[in-house]
Write a protein that binds this DNA or RNA. Structure first.
Lengths: 260, 260
DNA sequence: TCCCATGTTGCGAAAAACGCTACAACAAAG
DNA sequence: CTTTGTTGTAGCGTTTTTCGCAACATGGGA
């Protein structure tokens, strides 16, 4: 952490950019002079650089943010990989709960695991990074399906065949759809041995900058668990999912918010 | 047009920010030194300011864009009333045509996407909000260039380099100018695989209260389409553009009316 | 251990910014 | 039609800041 005050001019320039950003209606040169206590001439020179580089535009004699900031933000988002962002938080979650944690994306009517964190106590499971599993009988899948746009959901439902993996697997489309509504309402999904016998999962969706569900995170344990433990899983998984969403720049405040 | 080279330091700082933005994997101090031919010490001081203000973060010893750029971009988008006004109408258009819809602004000789609506059937495209594309080979760009004041057009034309993206890209300035006249006459622009191979676009300009073209709206599809479908796209896109213009208080009755 | 890459600090020479004045272009007011 | 005010440029002496050098930490990896 370099606490080096020695690039004052550049810092002041950035400060001016920040000031302009925070005035939605635009700002005049004199207002800027007032705020940073500089001579008009000097402010013009900062503005010249900002305008030349595209960070600031002139609109009806006032200065407003330019398109360059959008361009940078797009590059910032491009670099943001859900997996990279999520990983440390997933490790933290796995360690806190002493259980296996998964990260998955939708791939048609299936999910694909894109990350997996095991702890010393974790169970031998079917999953592996890159492996696929059906979406309709996994918590990870349901957490995602519940939040995608209705048209896309319909499309995916049509591609699905509800094959029973265990005697708890939901195979009735109507009942499945109802379950998704419940997931949408509560913000998390569960799987009680619907895919693998005796395996219990809780999952929550992760939203990106645009409010779109891009991945989901889950914790896995044996089914013979107390209600207390189950509640703790729900709480921690949703918390982690929310943290990841936040790190991705999501604007959602709760799972009930609409996208965008 | 302030041609005042006198804020070199600030400008150089912004240049450094731009360099960092364009390296997705992050950049080291020495790489930056190389690029701008400055001593390592100085670069550190610029970076110090950028990190302090949140424009840049350190990630594994490399420097990458920070969250501040996202923050500014969201403020930028918030200020755009075109976008807010247009959004519901764009969604409607996308649903009606089952195709991807874009909203863009001019940014010098390029366009920048400020909104994008996808449907379940939409194509995987290169675009993203905040991303830029050349104006001369996109329908969105041509729809805007055709309606800006001649002096401004001349200025922008001088900044353009006509690089061929596909073998259909128009690279002759004279022919391009003629095409703009045609766009001005008909009120809409098309792009038949001039930017992305096999991609077809129709765009129409949006005018604000003062009759100035402030944005354009487009619909995108594959090129293998019937003339009927093409005509439908033209009709619907221009209709939506007019609705948005109207909502912005545009006084134009047709695209042939003069501005102001 | 030494080495090399990475990051921090002190200081003088050199360069840039600051802010003064002056001035042009334009609009609104008198 | 002049006056007054606003907005943006330009030149230049003075003052402040930066630049780049060298020296100095730090902290792995061969």
């Amino acid at each position: 952490m370099g606490i080096d005050n020695r690039s004052r001019i550049f810092e002041r320039g950035l400060e001016i950019l920040g000031l302009i950003a925070n005035k939605r209606a635009g700002v005049t040169v004199d207002e800027l002079c007032e705020e940073i206590r500089l001579h008009r001439t000097s402010v013009y020179r900062y503005l010249g650089a900002l305008v030349r580089e595209g960070y600031v535009d002139r609109k009806n004699g006032k200065y407003v943010l330019g398109t360059k900031v959008l361009e940078l933000a797009s590059l910032f988002l491009e670099r943001l990989d859900v997996r990279e962002t999520a990983h440390p938080l997933l490790v933290e979650l796995a360690e806190k709960l002493h259980a296996t944690v998964h990260l998955a994306q939708l791939a048609g009517p299936e999910i694909i695991y894109i990350d997996k964190i095991e702890t010393h106590r974790s169970l031998p499971l079917y999953s592996r990074i890159g492996k696929k599993a059906p979406a309709y009988c996994t918590a990870l899948g349901k957490a995602l399906l519940a939040f995608i746009p209705p048209e896309r959901l319909q499309l995916i439902l049509r591609q699905m065949t509800f094959k029973p993996y265990t005697d708890r697997t939901v195979t009735d489309p109507g009942r499945f759809f109802e379950e998704l509504q419940e997931v949408k309402r509560t913000g998390y999904a569960v799987d009680k041995g619907e895919h693998e016998e005796g395996i219990f999962c809780v999952a929550a969706p992760i939203f990106d900058f645009y409010g779109e569900p891009v991945a989901s995170v889950s914790v896995t344990d044996l089914m013979r668990n107390s209600l207390d433990k189950e509640n703790r899983y729900v709480k921690e998984v949703t918390r982690t999912a929310w943290q990841i969403s936040f790190a991705l720049g999501s604007k959602r405040r709760t799972h009930l918010d609409g996208g965008r």
